[in-house]
Design a protein around this nucleic acid. Sequence first.
DNA 1: AGACTAACCTGAAAGC
DNA 2: TGCTTTCAGGTTAGTC
Length: 290
Amino acid sequence: MPELPEVEVTRRRIAPFLVGKRLVELKTTAPSYFFVTPPDELRKRLPGLCFTALERKGKYLLATLSDESHLLLHLGMTGQLFADGASNPRLLRKTGRAALTPGLEVGFRPDAHTHLEFHMDSAPVVFFRDTRKFGKVEWLAPGAVSKRLSKLGPDALEAEPEGVHASFRRRSVAVKTALLDQSVLSGAGNIYADECLFLAGVRPNRSANRLTLQQTRRILAELRRVLERSIETGGSSISDYVAPDGLDGGYQDERRVYARAGEPCLVCGSAIKRVVLGQRSTHYCSVCQK
DNA sequence: AGACTAACCTGAAAGC
DNA sequence: TGCTTTCAGGTTAGTC
């Protein structure tokens, strides 16, 4: 699910349940790959604090707490952040019935993959669930700078073409690979990288350091367009939950190449190709993209 | 510094 | 039916 648009939609939907609310109790699973900060330390430090802000940095969510410490969250591949009572049919079918939140008739029943439960003062419980544990949670002491955040390049929605072009010129990798490198540009993932290259008419395997500034401009403009459009459709999707599976999301119907291998190109009709670049499956039209 | 690989996990779907 | 393989929207540590 989570590339920039999904993280942004998650941020917008979950912020009202956190910001301005006080954390009463935090429940966690046992230590694992998911926890950068050990769960017992989180349980010790966080309760009693209020959330004062929730920002997005590339694909990360950065929450500010009332003591000026921060909580850094990443959804990884399968992370889901949602409030109790969310009308997520998939989650409810699996785990539903009596809500943990007083006053809610139907709610989410935490399972083995529910690594965090934020029990708030007079607000629904907020859950962070992640089956593959590629997601991350890290607590940052007041004034501490996250190494993960400091190596992020400019946000994909704000990046200046000149700067990205300069980064591209230092890379001999495929442009698709360069787009996925979060230190070049943060927020793009496998779907939107493929989509913007299609719209820009650029082959994914073109060497990043041989692109002109003009081509870089075009790629960034198309990337921004698909990201903004996807945020829009995510925001307009049903009720108040974030689909756990991106293909259930609103943008699914607008994909031009991603996961369409063998199907006809919507522009020229030739079959969409699938190759592997930088260990990621990559989709493109060999006629429309040069 | 940059390029490349393997590794971290689980579960759904396809293949036999 | 059941076992095996493949694949997945991400990142990082280690090696050259």
